[in-house]
Amino acid sequence: MAERETKISARNVDVFYGEKHAIRNLSIDIPDRAVSAFIGPSGCGKSTFLRAINRMNDTIASARVTGGIAVDGEDIYDSAIDVVQLRARVGMVFQKPNPFPKSIFENVAYGPRIHGLARNKTDLEEIVVSSLKKAGLFEEVKDRLDHPGTGLSGGQQQRLCIARAIAVNPEVILMDEPCSALDPIATARIEELIDELRQNYCIVIVTHSMQQAARVSQLTAFFHLGTLVEYGDTDEMFTAPQEKRTQDYITGRFG
């Protein structure tokens, strides 16, 4: 693990929703160009922490985040940070595919257009095609880029959402159970894609499936009751966890 450069660093992070203490004193260093999986029972804080990494919790009135989270050493909760820019750098793919009610082309072009990443129409087309290719979708949709994104199958819609996230040149891609609404074949496609994308991005995935964590991640973090119990090499975590709670969860004694 030592050779990987840290991309996201959290120190003593607490997250509250009103009175509810959702994350307790969490510190973690997440490396670049690797997949880190967050596992643990429902309601243990995995998605809450994921959303703290691109300030999605800001959209919830009762949410409060304390402690520090930095991307490339820059505190993302600093008042000078432009949240729109942050969310371009730290993209998010949700559990349920959520394409915009626009054409396939416009779904991907939207971000680059509002962030001014394309100088002209040719530039924009190049970004859209390259993002769809990276998301493994271009060959399937190249003849119908003007068709609505909502007309695609669930697995294709999720890849479209990944293409949309990639199109604004993010450094980090957060995925909140990206396969839970998909069938096994679509899931396998997304997992292959995650494996390819990690060459260029820091990827953090929340998953309910320990098998999925074992297949796609290099590092795994186990959450329980709002605390980070253990974080380390995925193979070691599944074969020789350090903590009894991790062992009990992995062997199905609770969760």
Rank of each mutant, 00 (worst) to 15 (best):
residue 226 G to F: 00
residue 98 N to C: 07
residue 115 H to L: 08
residue 12 N to D: 13
residue 201 Y to W: 14
residue 155 G to D: 04
residue 70 A to R: 09
residue 33 R to D: 14
residue 11 R to I: 15
residue 42 S to D: 08
residue 194 I to T: 07
residue 93 V to G: 03
residue 242 Q to R: 15
residue 61 A to V: 10
residue 215 R to V: 12
residue 215 R to K: 05
residue 105 F to E: 08
residue 253 R to S: 14
residue 88 A to G: 08
residue 26 L to E: 03
residue 164 R to Y: 02
residue 30 I to M: 09
residue 230 E to A: 10
residue 105 F to D: 03
residue 63 A to F: 03
residue 107 N to L: 00
residue 114 I to V: 15
residue 36 S to I: 04
residue 49 F to A: 05
residue 39 I to V: 11
residue 223 F to C: 06
residue 75 D to T: 11
residue 164 R to W: 01
residue 8 I to Q: 01
residue 108 V to E: 02
residue 6 T to C: 15
residue 202 C to K: 02
residue 239 T to Y: 14
residue 9 S to F: 15
residue 238 F to A: 04
residue 31 P to T: 05
residue 63 A to H: 03
residue 119 R to S: 11
residue 190 I to T: 00
residue 201 Y to H: 06
residue 59 T to G: 13
residue 148 P to D: 09
residue 56 M to Y: 05
residue 108 V to Q: 01
residue 36 S to G: 10
residue 34 A to R: 02
residue 167 A to Y: 13
residue 204 V to Q: 01
residue 75 D to V: 08
residue 131 S to C: 07
residue 149 G to D: 12
residue 76 I to G: 00
residue 130 S to R: 08
residue 121 K to P: 12
residue 106 E to W: 04
residue 181 A to E: 15
residue 195 D to Q: 05
residue 24 R to K: 14
residue 73 G to K: 09
residue 133 K to E: 10
residue 255 G to I: 05
residue 127 I to S: 00
residue 254 F to Y: 13
residue 160 L to M: 13
residue 23 I to W: 05
residue 191 E to A: 02
residue 10 A to V: 06
residue 187 T to W: 01
residue 3 E to I: 15
residue 236 E to R: 10
residue 246 T to G: 05
residue 53 I to N: 04
residue 55 R to P: 04
residue 49 F to I: 13
residue 188 A to F: 04
residue 116 G to I: 10
residue 215 R to T: 07
residue 3 E to H: 11
residue 209 S to V: 13
residue 130 S to C: 11
residue 170 P to T: 08
residue 109 A to T: 01
residue 31 P to M: 05
residue 248 D to L: 09
residue 91 G to C: 11
residue 109 A to Y: 00
residue 144 R to D: 13
residue 127 I to L: 06
residue 112 P to S: 14
residue 53 I to S: 04
residue 227 T to E: 10
residue 194 I to R: 00
residue 147 H to R: 13
residue 79 S to D: 07
residue 180 S to C: 13
residue 23 I to P: 01
residue 202 C to W: 01
residue 113 R to F: 08
residue 123 D to A: 06
residue 196 E to S: 06
residue 106 E to F: 14
residue 91 G to T: 12
residue 136 G to C: 10
residue 255 G to W: 01
residue 52 A to P: 03
residue 79 S to F: 14
residue 78 D to L: 11
residue 201 Y to D: 02
residue 221 A to Q: 09
residue 128 V to D: 01
residue 215 R to L: 06
residue 135 A to I: 14
residue 217 S to V: 14
residue 134 K to Q: 10
residue 225 L to N: 14
residue 161 C to I: 08
residue 113 R to V: 12
residue 97 P to C: 04
residue 81 I to L: 12
residue 58 D to N: 05
residue 72 D to E: 10
residue 202 C to I: 08
residue 129 V to I: 13
residue 133 K to P: 05
residue 62 S to Y: 07
residue 162 I to C: 12
residue 228 L to F: 00
residue 48 T to H: 04
residue 24 R to I: 09
residue 157 Q to K: 12
